[in-house]
Amino acid sequence: MFSRRQLFRFVAGLGAFGSSTAAYGFGVEPVLRLRVARYDILPPQWPADFQLTIAVVADLHACDPWMSLEHIEAIVDRTNALKADIVVMLGDYVAGHRHVTRRIPAGEWAPVLAGLKAPLGVHAILGNHDYWDDKTVQRDGQGPTVSRRALEAAGIPVYENDAVRLTKTGRPFWLAGLGDQLAYLPARRFRPVRRIGVDDLSATLAKVADAAPVILLAHEPDVAMRVPSRVALQLSGHTHGGQVRLFGWSPVVPSRYGNRLVYGHTQTNCDVIVSGGLGCSIMPFRFGVPPEIVLVTLGRSAPATS
């Protein structure tokens, strides 16, 4: 993630815009704005006559007052109203900063997310904060996180280097979920772990057993540079669109590839969509990148028949 010092330095610079701008960034955009970002795309690997709609929920960071249970309920209702074929959740359900009045336990936010509905189901992966927040998993270097147990108890499957074959009107596709790439913090207080991430891209894609197109869920977008063209679409979060975005440019980017993978639709070996997310990390401030639910439409609708 981007450093606290970098973000505070930039936010301090916003003082030139006046106190009203700062008030907007802290009090309006993170809490009161919610939009739907729509992408209609046709990746080369996706059949043109196979239309699939995907609703994407990313980076909730549940906490009071910024992402209350009532706010999550509103996000669930807004997502359901999109009537997508499938809903995917891209991780970071727990609070991502300390400027909160209450950290909402997983046992409270997960049942609210269970209200999400779609014909092809609701599917989830985990993010780095879901790992970082679990001190037991950090200490032991293994084990299911509190977030994963809560989601699965609420009936939502969580994928970690796994893939599932789904069908819509007899047309198959694969949904693959990558393990988090930043799961373990550098061990200062706890037992060292061999690696930071739990991701295994090769093992994940090895579970794809036929030629049906593949959609990959990966919390952090940087893996896109290693994803083969066998994948039609990668969906990612993590960056929050930089959380501050001016004229299509984010000054602080939690990606080694800078603004190339910070937000929106781009292409590497496959199509990549990076959500701006819903919550906040490091501090409760968003400017120029309001919270969003993403709606992706793959393929083209069938022509009307007379």
Rank of each mutant, 00 (worst) to 15 (best):
N80Y: 00
H238Y: 11
P144N: 12
Y257E: 13
I72K: 03
V252F: 07
D59Q: 02
L14D: 10
R260Q: 14
D133L: 08
V122L: 00
D130I: 05
A81V: 04
V252D: 11
V122Q: 03
V252M: 15
T167P: 03
L233K: 07
A23H: 14
P221K: 06
R78V: 01
A232R: 03
T305Y: 09
A62G: 06
A22K: 15
G288K: 05
A232L: 05
P303H: 11
C63A: 15
P303E: 08
Q6Y: 14
A95N: 15
P290Q: 11
G179E: 01
S20F: 12
T169H: 15
G258W: 06
A12Y: 12
G127W: 07
P186Q: 12
A206Q: 15
G288E: 08
C280V: 09
L298S: 04
L82N: 00
A114E: 02
A118H: 00
T136L: 13
S68W: 06
L185M: 15
I293W: 04
A22E: 13
S147K: 00
G241K: 08
I196M: 15
S229K: 11
S301I: 08
I125Y: 05
R9I: 13
D49C: 12
V146S: 08
V214Y: 01
L32V: 07
A218N: 03
R9K: 14
R230N: 07
Q181P: 01
P303A: 07
V274P: 02
G299N: 08
A224H: 08
I125Q: 01
K83C: 10
V87Y: 01
E29R: 03
P157G: 04
I75Y: 04
V198W: 05
A232G: 09
L126R: 05
S306I: 12
V158Q: 00
V57A: 00
R5G: 11
S229R: 14
A114V: 01
S306P: 14
V57R: 00
A95E: 13
I293D: 01
P30D: 05
K83V: 04
D92L: 06
S20V: 13
G127A: 09
V231L: 03
P65D: 11
V28S: 06
I282V: 15
L113A: 04
A232T: 02
D133C: 13
V158D: 02
